[in-house]
Amino acid sequence: MIIRLIQFQDRENQMNPMEKSKWPPGDLVIWIFIMAELLVFGIFFAAYAFTRANHVELFNTYQATLDRNSALLNTLALITSSYFVVRAVAAIKIDDNKRCFQWLLAALFMGVVFLVIKSIEYQHHFSQGINLSTNTFYMFYLSLTFFHFLHVVLGMVILIAVALKARAGGYCAQEHTGVETGASYWHMVDLVWIVLFPLVYVMK
């Protein structure tokens, strides 16, 4: 049944881009995966918020030890990266594989910036002897952000595969489902961080 749905979606994707489609951009399978990922992160966020409700003072105290400047830079890195991916999709829609590849490279660079900044943050925490069992706040902070960190890595692996195919001229204006599929996943990674940043670093 899923295969029939995808075939129908492929036909719909060939229609006029100004018309509304019944299906989201990219493969339908990635959207089912995205919804599953959002559900998991949503449960994680709710668990953080309800656990905090019973330990408000502890959460506020240790939240103040986090580096909000790094969090700002990381948020800007992911937003910028997402924007570059949007431009990559726009480029392939006008048959420009070279420009698509260049935008994807720029997006990947911003992904690397995110990973480097987050790694420096982790190194700082670990050097102070902070780990998952330090307290409830750090258990949530480290597990939530590291779970997201792994998703950034997976997103980058997908973008690398898409970029290599774009460099080889593997997409065109008529068939670029792969670019949209990778882009959709990368935007999901950005979307999750957009909620994680205020929840863990700012709200108190």
Binding site: K22, A46, A49, M188
Partner: peptide, 29 residues
């Protein structure tokens, strides 16, 4: 960015529903 404004039906609101759900739960907590 995800292009959902050019989609109709369930997928148009998939992200909005997720945001509404987690927003409600976090607000309540």
């Amino acid at each position: 960015f995800m292009g959902l404004r050019r989609v109709s039906g369930f997928w148009r609101w998939a992200v909005a529903i997720w945001l509404l759900l987690i927003g409600s739960l976090i607000s309540y907590a």
